[in-house]
Write a protein that binds this DNA or RNA. Sequence first.
DNA 1: GATGAATGAGGCTTCATTCAT
DNA 2: CATGAATGAAGCCTCATTCAT
Lengths: 209, 209, 209, 209
Amino acid sequence: MGTTTLENMSTEQRKRQDVVGNSQLPSVDEKPLRADARRNRERIIAVARAAFIDEGADVQMEEIAKRAGLGVGTLYRNFPTKDALFGEVMRDQMARIVDALALALEDENTDLAFRALVLTWAEDAAKHIGLREMVAEFPDATACAGQSARYNELMEVFLERAHREGHIRSDITVVDFRGLMCGLAASIAIGADWKRCAEVILSGLKPIE
Amino acid sequence: MGTTTLENMSTEQRKRQDVVGNSQLPSVDEKPLRADARRNRERIIAVARAAFIDEGADVQMEEIAKRAGLGVGTLYRNFPTKDALFGEVMRDQMARIVDALALALEDENTDLAFRALVLTWAEDAAKHIGLREMVAEFPDATACAGQSARYNELMEVFLERAHREGHIRSDITVVDFRGLMCGLAASIAIGADWKRCAEVILSGLKPIE
Amino acid sequence: MGTTTLENMSTEQRKRQDVVGNSQLPSVDEKPLRADARRNRERIIAVARAAFIDEGADVQMEEIAKRAGLGVGTLYRNFPTKDALFGEVMRDQMARIVDALALALEDENTDLAFRALVLTWAEDAAKHIGLREMVAEFPDATACAGQSARYNELMEVFLERAHREGHIRSDITVVDFRGLMCGLAASIAIGADWKRCAEVILSGLKPIE
Amino acid sequence: MGTTTLENMSTEQRKRQDVVGNSQLPSVDEKPLRADARRNRERIIAVARAAFIDEGADVQMEEIAKRAGLGVGTLYRNFPTKDALFGEVMRDQMARIVDALALALEDENTDLAFRALVLTWAEDAAKHIGLREMVAEFPDATACAGQSARYNELMEVFLERAHREGHIRSDITVVDFRGLMCGLAASIAIGADWKRCAEVILSGLKPIE
DNA sequence: GATGAATGAGGCTTCATTCAT
DNA sequence: CATGAATGAAGCCTCATTCAT
């Protein structure tokens, strides 16, 4: 009792915020009207993100350009290298994750918010098997050091609060948690059930009474 | 009671069997003795395994050849393609894992044996970050379908027994467990602490009282 | 009478259509003008054709690229594999041969047209010793199955007409004729005189009175 | 009348001498008895000849060694390079051809002997499609310059006699004839009927009345 | 000598990146 | 600025040849 289980998912569902978000790409149809150079950049990121989180980092630049309805040259005008693009996409993805985290922090029901955060992540990871690879490279990416730092700060607070409230073990660090989330994605990518794996992690994070 | 914790690791340690094993490569110095035509094949596997489990699948054939003190041709004499070599290494690695599992099954203390299995895996994964990639490809590898099937059988028994004895939840499937182990490796590869992550998984696998 | 001999070649010459055609490659000097993205493809084919019909199929892709003043990548952008390029060149060459055949069919003087066809082929084969190898692979090439079929149809008609008019033996099939032309090229490639060999074939094809 | 046609093949058959000969390879079973180092060389040539005339020059050295029941090293002990082996096989093959020619020269019925020579060659070429490639390289092979020269001498005589007796045209040189034979093999290799093609050549070689 | 494992130059192909239009 | 054709380094693989046993 007090423990949130899979049974009351409907309640939890309301709280979740998809860390992947809508993939409403800016439509290609609109003829290159003048000031949408900015649009292009966002369009590229959107397309690249979709490609990278769905298929992993080895999607080719030509392919991304094609899907964006652009030439490769335009990709390279916006991002000097593939790594830079991947980095930018990581930043974008990280921003969503940080946003979701920030939102979760506002929830006064720490336990429920924490559960929702992990479950949403698992569900997203089930839909986008490339997510694991992307989050696996976060630590190395100087590109999104800022986002990463903010994530760490927020998660630090979140973990601390959750611990204080008795929801999770005290020894888990932010790095551990990030690792576990990456691991969760890896489990799911291999074919494991996202709900059960998420429950194992969630359950395993609880304090040992 | 019954719960094995991190405190009595020294006891557990005795029980573990390294699933990676000693990497004592036959030294290169010894002049190519005649009868070790066979040795060479094993040498290649050993070197390739070291390379693949330490750095992942994209180590180049030339590099493996160099490390083995051989020309690429020799690699290709023994394995028709890079995939074949990788597959063989997977089979080799899988064999160790299956052996460790079989040994664990012989232990009458199911709980302890289970713990040891997971902890050893975590420790290995910490030392060899390429392991995640390798195990992630097991399911697809026809090369080691046999090993994989045997793993599933044994683990099925193990999980069933552990469940019956009240050590783990009942809903976890073999696929889930394999996924969790792969995920554990992924967590660790990102920099999370292997012991803590393993404990989270182990703890999370316990039945919900 | 009716028999055309080597003596009145000048007359025949007018009727012939070179099945190899002018090898006027677009000069390399002209700076890569924009609109000749299409030109480049043709340039590649032209260069590759020159290489293949002069030296055979084992000219390297790098070599062809170099001669075309291009990088290998450009070759592969236009043709996915070397076989595809060779196939395209075959199609191109076959088209010329079929065109020459179609033209010959329009000539009301069947005998003369037939002679001219064979003689032109012999002369071409003398200039391009790789032609034999190329025509030898026509039958297997799915790439130019259409051209090949059309050749067969036309030649069937041609042979039938020539036979009906009493110019060639009745037992010769289209396959035989193609074989003989390939053989003619082989004879010439070895150093035999193209005119004499062609005359032997032509004479041998006449009906046995 | 006087003209030999396909109808009386049985008569011709008696006169022919297979220029390919029996492929009775020295049996492998006999344990390396002492003085058969010599045997090995002949065995290699026999096996290599079978391989080359059946499949062409790109049969691999390993393959030939395997078929000969030997190691590659032994091949290379006997022949320094693949070209040397191929050259030796050419010499061997050429020897058979020269022998057949010499035998044909002994026949007082020049016309019949000539026909038989060509027909046998065509039949052999139909059975061994690699023959074309081999004879195509005779001219370049210094290895069998002697055989080649002898062939030329004998054929010179043969052609001269045949011409004198009114069986063949006067303008055909030995090089032409060799070319035509190579071409005949090429025709056949492509799928043309060996008999009809041979008849075309034979008929074409007759003097123009 | 015989053996066959080892060698490595050379060929085909890919794909991130550059650059002329 | 956008485009996409061109580039070429780098990776996989083959096979004639060498060499240790």
